[in-house]
Every structure is written in C-alpha cells, then in structure tokens.
Write a protein that binds this DNA or RNA. Structure first.
Lengths: 219, 219
DNA sequence: CGTATCCCATACATTCGCGTATCGAACGGC
DNA sequence: GCCGTTCGATACGCGAATGTATGGGATACG
C-alpha cells in the first residue's frame, strides 16, 4: 500500500500519465533549485509547461507530489544499483576492491538529488507517516544490497560477519560522505577518503575466508 | 570575517541584544517545527513575542537570521563538545571505550537541531557563500576534535594513523547514523550499531601502541 | 530628573499564492 | 467519424506574507 495508490484507482489514460510524469520531473528540478519549502505550485507548473489546472487535476497538494516524486526517483536509483550489481554478478571473479568501486560508481553523488533528499528527510522527521516511508526504503535498500554485497564479497574471499550492521553502516557512510563530497566538489581527496572509509567498513564487518592476503581491502 | 559582523558595528544596547537573541531562539523552534522554507517572519516574531517591526529592525531577511542562528548554535554545540572532552582530559587513565562513549554522550542526537541542520545543508548546497560557511565549520570541528581524540586514544594505548581521514570519517559516521537513530527513535539496536560502527572506525584509523590487548576496541 | 536617541509596534499598500468552478478541447471506444 | 468522457486552461475571490513609513514609548546618559 504505497502512497502512489492513495488516489482512486481510476483508469490512467496516456495523456494523464504524461502530464503527471512531466509534473513530477519538473518538481524535482524546482525543488532542487528553490528548496521544497520555497517552491510553489505555479513554479512547478510553469517548469512543466502547464498551468495550475493540470496540477490540481493530478495532485491535491505539493506534499503529495513531493512524496510521489521522491518514491519514484529513489526506486529508480535502487533499480540502477541493482542493475550494476547484477552485471557484476555475471563476471566470474572480481576482487573485493573492484566490486566496491563498481558499487560506488553505480551510486552517483547527485547534487540536486541530495538537496531534495535532505529536505525530504527533514520533512519525514516531522511527519510520522513519512517516517515510515523512509524506514521502509531503508529496508528495501538492505534487501537489495545485502545479498549482492554478500555474494560479491564471498567471491572475493570474504564472509560477512554482521549483515544488518554492515547494511546500516554502508548507508550511513554513504549519506555522511556524500555531503562532504558535495560541499567540496573539486577536492579529489575527499572522494578518496570516502572510498577508503568504505574499505575500512567492509573489512570491519567481514573476515577473510581463505588465508590469501588479497582478501583484505587494505592498500 | 564571519557573517555575524556583516552588519554595521553600531553600539549594541542591552535591549537590542535581548530581542535579537529571543528572535534567534524562536527561529530555531519555528524552523524545526515548520521547516525553514515554510516558516514566515510572522511566525518567528509571534513565537518570540514581538511584531515584525522588531524583526526588520534586527535582520534584513529570514535568510540572514537563519545563517546567524545556525552559526551561533553550531558554535555552542562545539563548545559543549570541547568542554566534555576537556573534562575527560583531566581524568588520569581512561579506556578508549570510555572515551568514545563520553564523546558520543557529549554530542546528543537532537531531533529539532538535526531537522534544521539538514535544511541548512541543503540550503548551503545551493549557495556558494554558505557552502564555505559549512566547510569552515567542518574545519573547526576537526581542529577541536582531532587533538583531543588523539590524546585520548594515546592515553588508551593507540596512535592515530590518519588524522584527517579519521576526522572526516567521524563526522560522516556521526551524520549518517544520526538520521538512522532519529528515524527509529525507539529502536535501541540502531544506537548500538552506531556505537559499534564508531568503534570500528576508530580501530581502523589507529593502531595499538603497546601489545596490550585492551588497546583495541573490539568487544 | 530631563533629554536625546534608539528600538519596536502599528498601519498601509501591494504582491503573491492558493483552491475552486467552469468551459472548451483533446482523447478513447466503437 | 461520432460521442461521451476526461483533462487541463482560464478566471475569480480570498487570505496571507511582505516591506516600509511613521509615531510613541523605553532606554542610556549626564
């Protein structure tokens, strides 16, 4: 029972789907530029090439649109991630280092998206029902990420010792370091530190299978 | 040349200082409840017990007040932290575990403050000059934190191998795990995972001095 | 205690954003 | 191609927030 089904299950025609999607896309841009709080229905409509009539025919409030947009985009990012990891799964043997780098590349640090998510998080902390939305998204991330990370590490000769611990740690480290990267976009050292922190975390939450020294991620 | 000095250096009378401070305090509450974007000058003034006249006599815009408020509060939190660490410094010998716990207790995970900071961060990512404000704040955190962390660890028999790496890692892990704690406020396991992640990070960025096994933070 | 200065309350004009109601046009089914 | 339905543009009224200009009361200071 996701929030995208809260509206009456009317038939969705082609035209409706298109304008709805254009409004969602425009909303992401506007929210990223102006901030959700300072954004208006007019701005979103103008950006999408419609008038307010279209908006109120598709959504009841900016809040509803915000939620729908965020769920859609975050699900899309999760799909991207899944795809990148699945592609890795087809390769025969990869080092843990390669796997890590591939995952990090699959989760690009998007400026605009981060701004929007930061505000959505703050918003969710004010709204109990939105809080559950974010919590369930974290679960979805874990469910997607953990098995793949686990097999990737296994292929590299390491076994995960604490599944949930690793999952939460990865998300936390990602979120925390993403801000740093965005605040100093030109500083390559920040990104390297991010990568190294990930290595440390993966090492800390997994142990080497074999005695091969290449199992560990230390440089 | 902090932003708090941008105003003309007029004499600051007692009354002015008081109403200014009350406005700043009220702003924190209002921003936390409503979100910065959805907050209005009226709301802040009403909360503080003034009218808009008082506001425009002290600030030129909500943005200016937001910046002033955030700088003040974040500096105050840093002072708290410094105090807690200094108190630790007086103790003769502490385990690394005790030190870690003390630091974590000194940085309380405040719901309202996090909401405000999240929005401020998003705001800063849109505004180059604010971006520098946040960057310099990170520097201030490092300058305050690192020497104290380093001596605390040294007393516990560990030497830091990568100062800046550890500093950024601590901040990132703090930020990342703080959200998780706030999103599941009743789940004690989240906080334990947070603590454990901190232990792992400290271990990863430092090595044992002596051969005493008590140097490491592993349980 | 008197006064000059400062600070905040009040009033005002204006702009902005919202939500609704209505109507013409585009669409889909046949 | 026709028609019933749906979708989105337009117009309207309303309330809210903004910024300024002005006046009166508090405050600092001798």
């Amino acid at each position: 029972m996701t929030a995208s089904e809260t509206a009456a299950p009317k038939r969705v025609t082609r035209r409706r789907a298109q304008t709805r999607q254009r409004l969602l896309d425009a909303a992401l841009e506007v929210f990223a530029e102006e901030g959700f709080g300072r954004s208006t229905v007019d701005q979103v409509c103008e950006r999408a090439g419609y008038t307010r009539g279209a908006f109120y025919s598709n959504f009841t409030s900016l809040d509803e649109l915000f939620l729908a947009m965020w769920e859609q985009r975050s699900a899309a990012m999760l799909d991207d991630l899944r795809g990148a990891l699945d592609r890795l799964g087809t390769l025969e043997s990869v080092s843990a280092d390669e796997a890590l780098r591939a995952v990090l590349d699959a989760v690009p640090i998007d400026d605009a998206w981060y701004r929007v998510t930061a505000e959505f998080t703050a918003h969710a902390l004010r709204n109990p029902s939105l809080r559950r939305v974010m919590a369930s998204r974290e679960e979805a991330i874990h469910d997607t990420l953990l098995p793949l990370v686990e097999t990737a590490l296994a292929r590299a000769g390491r076994r995960v010792t604490d599944r949930t611990g690793l999952g939460h740690a990865l998300v936390a480290v990602h979120d925390g370091t993403a801000v740093q990267c965005l605040l100093e976009p030109d500083d390559e050292a920040v990104r390297q530190r991010r990568e190294e922190l990930f290595r440390h975390v993966v090492n800390a939450y997994s142990t080497a299978y074999s005695t091969q020294s290449e199992g560990a991620l230390d440089e």
